[in-house]
């Protein structure tokens, strides 16, 4: 053994109390956390401050922010309150981002886990399917999926989930390939553990940390995709999302840029928050970096 590896083995448990402290000590993770807290706070507290239907025309159209304190962020071309719309958009974006990512993570983990665990023919078939999805441009596929089925929150979530899983599948598979032959997994096998139990209690908990880090990035991407779909008019016609507001305001971009600008800033902040958090998580969960 080289005497260079002096420090004790790196703490590998992500659930140890050190994780939060490590995240807090990581500048990008801390900034991401603060931004995310702001967005979450906006989505939770917003409905209390600006109750009402975001579709309702409440005032004169194209009021600039601050012009009338009844509509602090102004109104759009139809006279709908922008603050109420942004709050609704925050809830929709977060909901779609989270649920779509959950779907992507589930499909991806399932494909990756089975392929990595069983290897051979199972792996070959599953990975060819994964590649098939990877070769089609994700946004085009999402557009097609939403267009074929009726645009709604459900179809948007499903479409985004379905186009986002291949990267997770590849990551999980790589993790499983390594962990499958680790001695503690073999040890569990010699104890007579069943295959599902082996996967769920021994391999998966060790494979998840990078998946969690990546999923934060998937959330960010899902939010962007949803905004893009809504912008193209492929969002749920009954739900006001950030993309819908931008789509509605694009004709008046020169006279009232804030109609597109405010939801645009909201998207940037939210996506940035998740990206920073993902980056920070990646560092904090990476055992190689922890050693430093």
């Amino acid at each position: 053994m080289s005497g260079i590896a002096l420090t004790a083995a790196p703490p590998a448990a992500s659930d140890s109390p050190g994780l939060l402290r490590r995240l807090a000590g990581n500048r990008s993770a801390a900034l991401g956390g603060v931004l995310l807290a702001l967005v979450l706070g906006f989505a939770v507290v917003g409905p209390l401050l600006w109750p009402g239907d975001p579709w309702e025309m409440v005032a004169a159209p194209m009021l600039w922010p601050g012009e009338d304190m009844a509509n602090p962020l102004g109104t759009d071309v139809m006279g709908r309150d922008l603050a109420t719309g942004l709050v609704s958009g925050a809830r929709v974006s977060l909901l779609i981002g989270l649920v779509a990512t959950l779907i992507a993570a589930t499909i991806g983990t399932l494909f990756g886990a089975l392929g990595g665990f069983y290897g051979g023919r199972t792996d070959a078939v599953l990975m060819r399917v994964t590649e098939l999805f990877q070769t089609v441009p994700t946004f085009v596929l999402a557009v097609v999926l939403v267009a074929v089925f009726r645009p709604s929150v459900t179809t948007a979530v499903l479409a985004i989930g379905i186009v986002s899983w291949p990267a997770t599948a590849r990551l999980v598979r790589a993790q499983f390939l390594v962990l499958r032959d680790r001695e503690f997994v073999l040890a569990a096998e010699t104890l007579g553990m069943s295959t599902p139990r082996l996967i769920l209690t021994q391999i998966l908990p060790n494979a998840l940390p990078p998946v969690i880090a990546m999923s934060t990035l998937t959330i960010a991407h899902a939010i962007q995709t949803e905004a893009a779909l809504s912008f193209l008019g492929l969002g749920d016609p009954n739900v006001m999302s950030w993309g819908t507001i931008i789509g509605g305001g694009r004709e008046q971009l020169t006279e009232a840029w804030y109609v597109c600008g405010l939801p645009g800033i909201a998207i940037i902040v939210t996506v940035l928050a998740f990206n920073l958090l993902g980056e920070g998580l990646n560092d904090a969960l990476n055992p190689h970096l922890q050693r430093r």
Partner: peptide, 19 residues
């Protein structure tokens, strides 16, 4: 059979689940 025959592995660190 598995309960009647058990194994001690080479690397005591690799053979214990870190989590």
């Amino acid at each position: 059979y598995r309960s009647g025959l058990q194994m001690v592995f080479q690397d005591p660190f690799a053979s214990l689940n870190p989590r």
